[in-house]
Simulated scan of single mutants.
Amino acid sequence: MSDHEIVLSGEPKAPFQVEPVLPEAEHPGVKQQRADDLPARFLEITAKRRPLLNAKGGLSANRARQVKEFLGQNFSRKLSLAEMAAVCGLSPYHFVRAFSKTFGVSPHQYVLGLRLDFAERLLADRRMSITDIADLSGFSSQSHLTTTMKKYRHVTPLQVRERQARSRAGK
């Protein structure tokens, strides 16, 4: 076995290739990000990320599915941590720890990701105002949507709308 192969017991003996780590400036097409830009790093893990099932201290597969379905149906309204925790039968403290261990982000970050994804889909309809989209997506105002989208997606709703219009025109 070479230095670059990792084989774990109980798994097929397929080699895991380790690629050399290049400084960010050497990666083609990679936008440089400050190391302390944690909110952006959290939302790089999208809401579509598969949960780490059976992770020690995490949610069971059944509880992860239940909370994911609950959040998928209710992300656009105001949600309390206690309400989310009740879906899993846990205290809010234990729920946050288990959810974060399972999904890789806090419940708040996960819900923000769902709201932003939904808002981006709605922005394709140019007949809807950004204020209405913000309201339907669960944001308190257009300003809240714009600030959150700029912080986590590095674009404004108007820029998303313009990009979508350009991509439709280019098809």
Rank of each mutant, 00 (worst) to 15 (best):
S2Y: 04
D3Q: 15
I6R: 14
I6M: 08
L8H: 08
S9P: 11
K13P: 06
A14E: 11
P15Q: 10
F16T: 13
Q17F: 10
Q17C: 09
Q17D: 14
E26T: 02
P28N: 11
V30H: 11
V30I: 10
L38P: 13
A40E: 15
A40T: 14
A40V: 15
R41L: 13
R41A: 12
F42W: 09
E44G: 12
A47S: 14
A47V: 15
K48E: 14
K48N: 15
P51I: 00
L53I: 08
L53W: 02
A55S: 05
A55M: 02
K56Y: 03
G57W: 00
R65K: 12
V67D: 05
K68C: 07
E69S: 05
F70L: 01
Q73T: 10
Q73W: 05
F75R: 06
F75G: 07
F75C: 05
L79E: 02
M84S: 06
A86F: 00
V87R: 01
C88G: 07
C88M: 03
S91N: 05
V96W: 01
R97W: 01
R97D: 04
A98T: 06
F103E: 04
F103R: 04
G104F: 02
Q109C: 07
Q109M: 07
L112F: 10
G113A: 09
L114F: 04
L116D: 04
L116I: 05
F118W: 09
E120F: 02
E120C: 11
R121L: 04
L123Y: 05
A124T: 12
D125V: 10
R126A: 13
M128L: 15
S129M: 09
T131L: 13
D132S: 15
S137E: 02
F139G: 02
S140D: 04
S141L: 02
H144A: 15
L145T: 12
L145C: 13
T146Y: 07
T148Q: 12
M149C: 14
K151H: 15
K151D: 13
Y152N: 12
Y152H: 15
R153G: 08
V155N: 15
P157G: 10
P157I: 05
L158F: 12
E162A: 11
E162K: 14
R163M: 06
R163H: 07
Q164W: 01
R166W: 00
G170D: 11
G170E: 14
